[in-house]
């Protein structure tokens, strides 16, 4: 399993995190779960994952700040998918400007997420 691709998932809804962890691990990825932006940044710095999934609205450090940290401070080109709630169009635009690769509006279908993850990681 050591060659499994690593994904950091930053999401404050722990139930959703767990669901996606199960789903993506079934596909053969290794999931690292962060409950907020701060933990996400720590995990990214430690594990240098192949993909980052992050919610935009999180306590303490927002998803936008995570993207900005990855792109500008760590200078990594790791693909990033952001999750956003309805009506956060402005935030999504900001996320893209900061260097996000894709976005999924909540509520989303886990199956669709898997397809997008595969596309970015192949």
């Amino acid at each position: 399993m050591s060659d499994a691709k690593k994904i950091v998932l930053a999401e404050d809804n722990s139930t959703l995190s767990l669901l996606l962890k199960f789903r993506l691990e079934k596909e053969g990825y290794k999931l690292l779960i962060a409950a907020d932006g701060k933990e996400a940044i720590e995990l990214i710095e430690q594990h240098n994952p192949e993909l980052i999934l992050t919610d935009i609205m999180m306590p303490f450090i927002s998803g936008l700040e995570v993207i900005s940290h990855v792109r500008n401070k760590l200078n990594l080109q790791t693909p990033i998918i952001v999750f956003s709630a309805a009506g956060q169009e402005e935030m999504v635009l900001k996320a893209f400007n900061l260097g996000a690769n894709d976005f999924m509006g909540k509520p989303f279908s886990p199956n669709e997420l898997v397809i997008r993850v595969k596309r970015l990681l192949c």
Partner: peptide, 15 residues
């Protein structure tokens, strides 16, 4: 509340 937390964020068959 656990059911709802997930229900609010996902769509499709799982919802």
């Amino acid at each position: 509340s656990t059911l709802l937390r997930l229900r609010n964020d996902i769509s499709g068959e799982m919802a």
